[in-house]
Design a protein around this nucleic acid. Structure first.
Lengths: 236, 236
DNA sequence: TAGTGGTCTAGACCACTAT
DNA sequence: TAGTGGTCTAGACCACTAG
């Protein structure tokens, strides 16, 4: 683990262990430099990382402060991976409805940047949170990257398997979302009624090298899904 | 403007002007260092900024590549400001329903971190996109920070006024969102029917120094609102 | 193994905040 | 004006990718 990641982790743990609240001040840069015995740039890099994660905010001329949000029970939309890891506080389970190798539709081929005659893993799951239906998920994995999948893996965390089992590095993703009304099939799987609201999210996941490997379409149960996003003012 | 911001802007403009596509390779670091006559750290900082903005992605050992998403007409959820600036391609207008100074509710006082006897500006607007209703917005501004507002400002971009008129620096924000059914009043303002879907978003905006200054509640017209989020793998 | 991006340092100087 | 975070440099060395 790199120095700046290690230091970031320690600072985060310190905030957690001491239950620091929004606005609480952290030691000044010079102190942190001395404490961790690193240069200013390294500490700065650690703090920038924590700032991106929404853990602290830095104010020039003033100090470094803890950033916290108040509401619990919200799912972070930005954690670029399955929920399994994101929602450790919750009890997430999956029921695999379907898993097979098939040829992509035009839409899927375009998203995954593959030919129509290449193979994809198609997985359809219903995911549960604390026993309630959370969402219906259909995923398409590029089989030339995700070379093997089975029901056992799919009923656990696929992303964990991708990273630890296959040794792949998940990079960035593009999410498209809108609100609509449930159709008959979606309503059935989620235990709701046709015409009730849904949040519909399509996500294209890429490896760190830019290759798209997973295109997924998720329909959320509106009764169970509260989402949370932390924004930084990185856009001028 | 700082060097690294200037360089980032120039690189972004270069990508735009040459209509570069996802995966197109940019010059290597050494070339960029020479071209802009700056040190490696500065170029790196520019590229990190562009990476945060979702404009490029960097692959160690390989190169720097353009990142693009394919879909047009989606509103970015992460642009931490009004839409006015975010959606220059669209025609966004606002109708101010109500604007007054009032005392906060407990909920608002808690969010804005003020006392119940302090003043807030309350603004209720309907926003339109290309002539259709986009959303119903209720905002509460801490009056000790946003000292003055009027209908004219509120019918244009309030955030532009906050930055340029008041000289304040907008920092981070926390967004909470869920899907639900429209109530009678919301349906009326949006021109929809009671019980139809809505996306409901509460956002708490802070200045760069961490002070919350705006708590807003927005109900979106599900027919008009498609959202877009770019994620980076900053979370391990 | 050559090429490319990433980490880390030590230090100078700058810009903003608080008093 | 003292204190604090931000920018920028020059350079050494490291880690990953691709041919």
């Amino acid at each position: 683990m790199l120095k700046y990641q290690q230091i970031a982790a320690e600072i985060e743990k310190y905030i957690e262990d001491n239950a620091l609240q929004q606005g609480d001040k952290l030691p000044v840069l010079e102190t942190l430099m001395a404490q961790f015995e690193v240069s200013k740039s390294t500490i700065t890099k650690s703090l920038d990382l924590l700032e991106k994660k929404g853990v602290v905010f830095q104010v020039r001329g003033s100090g470094i402060f803890v950033r916290r949000h108040k509401r619990k029970g919200y799912i972070s939309l930005l954690s670029n991976q399955g929920f399994k890891e994101n929602l450790e506080d919750f009890n997430i389970t999956s029921e695999v409805i379907e898993l097979e190798v098939r040829k992509p539709t035009k839409e899927v081929a375009l998203a995954l940047n593959i030919e129509l005659n290449e193979d994809v893993y198609y997985i359809k799951r219903v995911r549960y949170i604390n026993g309630q239906t959370l969402c219906l998920e259909e995923s398409f994995y590029n089989k030339s990257i995700i070379t093997y999948l089975n029901k056992e893996i799919a009923s656990e965390s696929i992303f964990y398997y991708i990273r630890e089992g296959l040794g792949l590095k998940v990079g960035f993703s593009d999410m498209y979302l809108h609100v609509d009304k449930l159709n008959e099939e979606e309503a059935k799987y989620l235990g709701l009624k046709k015409g009730e609201p849904k949040l519909y999210v399509e996500t294209l996941f890429h490896l760190t090298n830019g290759q798209p490997f997973d295109f997924s379409k998720v329909t959320y149960n509106y009764e169970q899904s509260q989402f949370f996003i932390q924004t930084n003012s990185q856009f001028l």
